[in-house]
Amino acid sequence: MARYTGPKSRIARKFGEPIFGPDKALEKKNFPPGFHGLASRRRKKSEYGTQLKEKQKAKYMYGVLERQFSNLFKKASASKGVTGEVLLQLLEARLDNVVFRLGIAPTRSAARQLVSHKHINVNGEVLNIPSYTVRPGDVISVREKSKSLEVITTSLNSRRSSKFAWLEWDNSQLAGKFLTRPERAEIPENIKEQLIVELYSK
């Protein structure tokens, strides 16, 4: 199963944001990597470069590779609503992202691993496809035999209750419900989705 496995701090420094979560390396060196890192701040980026960078940031943030991202954009374009917002809603509805948002895993990559290793149920059935699109009303839960896993218990102990309005969490059952697709204003990620739409429109 293809996914990005390269150096994460380097990518976070490239975008100047902790896109993979808290990063001490980014805090110490808040400038692009490489010999010309500091100097690159002064170079003016082209319109295409700015748009491409925004798409790359979204891909890294949600752990999606080029073909998957392109397919999601086509799906968003064919759907009703504002294309950029629908694209983010589709990314938010990925099973690995929902597991992360519910607080079952500390990062999206950890959530992806939990799903792949069959620790997660959707509507009572084991589902090991991280890219699965969760639908409103779906119940995402931790498998009974996986409830004592350290990564899950540690993550749940540090989660904040009712963090996202489109999700509902039942701590006694270690299960959450995907209530509805989130509005753009509810999605906290710093992504300028209109730049991505402009890039694909060229």
Rank of each mutant, 00 (worst) to 15 (best):
V99T: 14
D23H: 00
S46H: 02
A39Q: 11
S9C: 15
G49D: 13
S70H: 14
Q51T: 00
A25F: 05
K14R: 08
G16I: 08
L38T: 03
L65S: 10
K28I: 03
S40D: 00
G49R: 14
K74G: 04
R112S: 03
E17D: 11
A12Y: 02
Q113P: 10
P136Q: 02
L87T: 04
E66F: 05
K57M: 09
L72A: 03
G34I: 12
Y62P: 11
E47Y: 11
T50C: 10
G137S: 02
L102W: 05
F20R: 00
G21K: 05
P130K: 15
Y48P: 00
L52F: 10
V98C: 13
S77V: 09
K53I: 01
S46T: 13
R41S: 12
K74T: 04
F20T: 00
N123M: 06
G81E: 11
E66I: 04
H117T: 06
P130S: 15
G103L: 14
I120S: 09
L65E: 14
Q113I: 08
L65I: 13
F20W: 01
T50D: 12
L87Y: 02
G16K: 10
V122R: 04
P106Y: 09
K74N: 05
K57F: 05
A12S: 12
K55H: 11
I120M: 11
T133E: 13
L38P: 00
L65R: 12
L95I: 08
R41H: 15
A93T: 13
V99M: 12
R42M: 06
K118G: 09
G124V: 05
G21W: 03
A78V: 00
K53V: 02
L91P: 01
G81W: 08
S9P: 07
S79V: 15
V82I: 10
R108M: 10
Y132D: 06
N71A: 14
S131Y: 02
D23F: 00
D96T: 15
K44I: 15
Y132R: 11
A78P: 00
S109K: 15
K24H: 06
L38N: 04
S79L: 15
K75T: 04
Y60E: 09
N121W: 10
Y62L: 08
K80S: 14
L38W: 02
D96P: 14
L72W: 01
K14V: 01
L52M: 12
N121Q: 09
E85Y: 12
K57P: 02
F69K: 01
G84Y: 06
E17T: 13
A105H: 06
F69T: 03
Y62G: 10
I104N: 08
I19M: 03
G37A: 08
L52D: 06
K57Y: 05
S116I: 12
A39C: 03
R41C: 09
V98T: 14
K59D: 08
A39W: 11
Q89I: 13
T107D: 06
A39I: 08
S46I: 03
I120V: 15
G137L: 03
N121D: 13
M61A: 07
S40Y: 02
R10Y: 09
Y132M: 09
E66K: 04
S77I: 05
N71Y: 11
L114S: 14
L26I: 03
